[in-house]
Design a protein around this nucleic acid. Sequence first.
DNA 1: TTTATTGT
Length: 286
Amino acid sequence: MGTSLSSWRRQGRRLGIAVLFVAVGTGLWEFQERQHKDAYTWMGVPTWEEFRPTTIHRVLRNDGYLVGWSDVRVNPLWVSYQVEAIDDSSIGSRPNFQADWRTLWPVGTDSYAGSGYDRGHLAPNYAIAAVHGRSAQVDTFLMSNMTPQRPQLNRQLWQRLEEVVMDHFAPRFDRLQVITGPVFPERFMDNVFNRVGLVEVPEAFYKIIVAPHNEAPLALAFIMPQDVRGNEPLDDYLVTIDDIEARTGLNFFPELTTEVESVLEGELRIQGWALEEVARRPGRFQ
DNA sequence: TTTATTGT
């Protein structure tokens, strides 16, 4: 017969070698993936609480930060990155905005033109550039890192918060984990046509800052609405992480034990941050 | 310019 016993053996060996290669390759890939996520997240990548079209997303990897991208909202639902105190505050010049072809829908650099909304960074230019370098800085100008923000928020209140993270919080702790993203109205259909091009317009934005180095980690969380003057005290917008989870349908830090989680996410504790020292610090821009 | 658009 054409298929002799030795030929079967040969094919079996080949198959075995192929399986071995796939197994080793997959293992290496998962190892790399895990290392990458460990560098940019703390206590796990954000997940959705329940399976809904508006909370489903996929993770885009960038230099310096991760994005949870939603093709339904045409928005990042979260970005995750870490910062530390830096000695040299100089960074490279602002790169150009650029389209991200990993997104299902085309969002061009001119998509926001004439809309009255800014292309607001979620992972900020300055912090990422200062901590993670030039190629990470370039990545923050991907349109998949943008979401429509009113100028008074983006250039005033939100900028003040980002400045406080790097200039006040980071020097107080070894390292900070930051997760930030948009908040949408509760009912999807109420906002479904409120879009800049294809991009749904959020009603507010959240930012979670964790100092994980302690045995008892500290967290501070904010929700800031689109409609602000810009000179409000930052502490007017303090919330709990549970509040943000309720508004977004996401689950942050899924690997926390339930005991730590109930304190860190359920209680509003501002001790240790000295927020009152900087809550009224004026913005850089007018 | 640690934000960004508009208009030249």
